[in-house]
Every structure is written in C-alpha cells, then in structure tokens.
C-alpha cells in the first residue's frame, strides 16, 4: 500500500501563547499589513457594521428566552462579525485587534461557568441544572430563572468556538507532493 504524500504544516503561531512582539517583527518582513485583506469598500462597510452585528448578536442572546434564537444563534452572529473582520482586514490585523489567547480563555471559562451554574442548581435546588433563581414576570427580559444566564454563557462559548475554529483552520497550510 503506497502511503499518501500529504503533509500538513501547522502554522506555529497558532499554538504560541502570546509572543506578540515577535510575530509583529515577522510581519514587517512581509508586504505591509495595511494592504492585506479586501478592498476599501469592504473594509469601510465592515468597519461600520461590525459593532452593529455584535450588538444584534447580543440582542438575540439576551432575548433567547422570549423570542426565537438564543445562545447558539446569537453566538453564531457574534462569531460572524469577528470573521467579517478577519476576511476584510486579513489575519495580521485581526491578530493585533483581538487578543486570541483571551478568546481561548473566554471559551474555556464559559464552558466551565455552564457547569458551575449546573452545580449551583445541584446545591440550591437539589438537582443538576435545576432552576434556582426567581422565575419573574412572563415576557419580562429578566425572567425565566437561570435560562437567560445559561443563554449568555452559551452565546460566549459558541461565538468564541466558531471564530477560533475558523481561525485555526485558516492557519493551516497544506502542501501536497514533496516533503516526507
């Protein structure tokens, strides 16, 4: 059986903790980062809309218990806003604009918080993930017990995960053929 000759080279920058200065140094050798990304039109539109999209994502998350949508949907919208920046401005700019390491930590932390909310339910109400907050008025934003809380946590988790998945995949360079 002949072995397939595909080598996958993972961009070492992805896994580095945060050696920002060194990666900046590497950037200067390349054509300046201002020219990477898409055209001026796309960049301008992205600059105007990115915060609106993020705000809309938060709206969807916060109204998850009242209207269609919720943590997952809102999180996807936030991730798309960040990906918009990545597409329009390129990888180097996004790395400077966002603290990727912080995003990774937020992702892990939000998953951990979800479990902690579940455990609080275990201790306060006697069952894992049981509701322990007041259920409030129907159709009020602050209502439905722990559900909005969990929606916010899920929103962060989904936003960070989806963005980081694309971020890591975009950092993989595949070379076919040579190289053992």
């Amino acid at each position: 059986m002949s072995k397939p000759k595909i080598t996958v080279i993972i961009d070492p920058d992805i896994y580095k903790d945060t050696p920002r200065p060194s990666s900046d140094k590497k950037d200067t050798s390349k054509p300046s980062s201002g020219k990477s990304g898409m055209t001026l039109i796309v960049k301008t539109v992205t600059r105007i809309t990115v915060w609106m999209i993020i705000l809309y994502g938060f709206y969807i998350i916060l109204h998850g218990h009242l209207t269609p949508g919720g943590g997952f949907g809102g999180g996807v919208i936030i991730a798309l806003a960040l990906l918009n920046v990545l597409l329009a401005y390129g990888r180097d700019f996004t790395q400077k604009w966002l603290n990727i390491h912080l995003l990774e930590n937020i992702e892990s932390l939000s998953a951990l918080l979800f479990v902690i909310v579940g455990i609080l339910g275990l201790f306060v109400s006697g069952s894992f993930l049981a509701n322990f907050l007041s259920k409030g008025q129907l159709f009020a934003v602050v209502s439905a017990g722990t559900i909005p809380l969990l929606n916010i946590i899920i929103g962060f988790k989904v936003a960070m995960s989806l963005f980081l998945v694309v971020w890591v995949l975009a950092g993989i360079k595949m070379s076919k053929g040579d190289a053992a």
Partner: peptide
C-alpha cells in the same frame, strides 16, 4: 460533571 470540569479547567489553567 467531573470529567467536564476537568476538561475545561485543563484548557484554562494548564496552558
């Protein structure tokens, strides 16, 4: 709960 907490704690503090 235990393995889930362990998994996410590891990614959070074991970096």
């Amino acid at each position: 709960i235990i393995p889930l907490i362990a998994a996410f704690l590891i990614t959070l503090i074991a970096g």
